[in-house]
Amino acid sequence: MPDAFATRTLDIATGASETVHDLTGSCVAFLREVADGRDGLLNVFVPHATAGIAIIETGAGSDDDLLDALQTLLPADDRWRHRHGSAGHGRDHVLPAIVPPHATLPVISGRLELGTWQSVCLVDTNRDNANRQVRLSFLG
């Protein structure tokens, strides 16, 4: 019987601009290797204080709409008490309260069960940290 728990860390280069990075393909590939047709849960976790995980449609403008909405909710200006880094960086530390740093998703028969237009995405508004890690963990 395969192991009931498997985990992997992805290294993601997000660059120097705000981004929504699609992780779905990496999640599917990971499950193909470790799930072995089993039911279970996939946990996606970003161990950073300034990034989050979102389930959102990508490629049709929704990813840019999300970044625009976050800019409206969390403007990159001097209102923030947390003041190191780029101007407005304090907002990046508030982001995980709105876009949580994790998502737990169903896996049925070894396959990630997302809706038709759903993708698993890393949301990173921190222009000061171009390299992120994302941990994928399967329990099944």
Rank of each mutant, 00 (worst) to 15 (best):
T14K: 03
T7S: 15
L112A: 01
I108H: 10
S119V: 00
A76N: 03
D124Y: 10
A54P: 02
D65N: 07
L31W: 11
R127C: 07
P96Y: 02
R38P: 06
T9H: 06
H93D: 06
A69T: 15
L74F: 12
A87I: 10
A51V: 05
H82F: 11
A29F: 00
H102Y: 15
R91H: 04
I98T: 06
Q71L: 07
A54W: 00
P75N: 14
L122H: 04
Q118H: 02
G88D: 12
G88E: 13
A69I: 15
L73K: 07
T24S: 14
V120C: 02
C121P: 06
G52H: 05
N129M: 01
A97S: 15
L114R: 11
I108P: 08
I56G: 10
F138E: 00
V123G: 12
T9G: 02
S119F: 00
E113P: 00
P2G: 00
T50L: 05
G88W: 09
G85W: 14
R79V: 01
E57S: 06
G15K: 08
R81G: 15
A54M: 03
I53V: 15
A35F: 11
N131D: 15
T7H: 03
I108G: 07
G52R: 03
V99R: 09
G52P: 07
S26M: 08
T104N: 05
D39V: 01
D63P: 11
N43E: 07
A6G: 05
A35P: 12
L105Q: 12
H102L: 05
T24G: 10
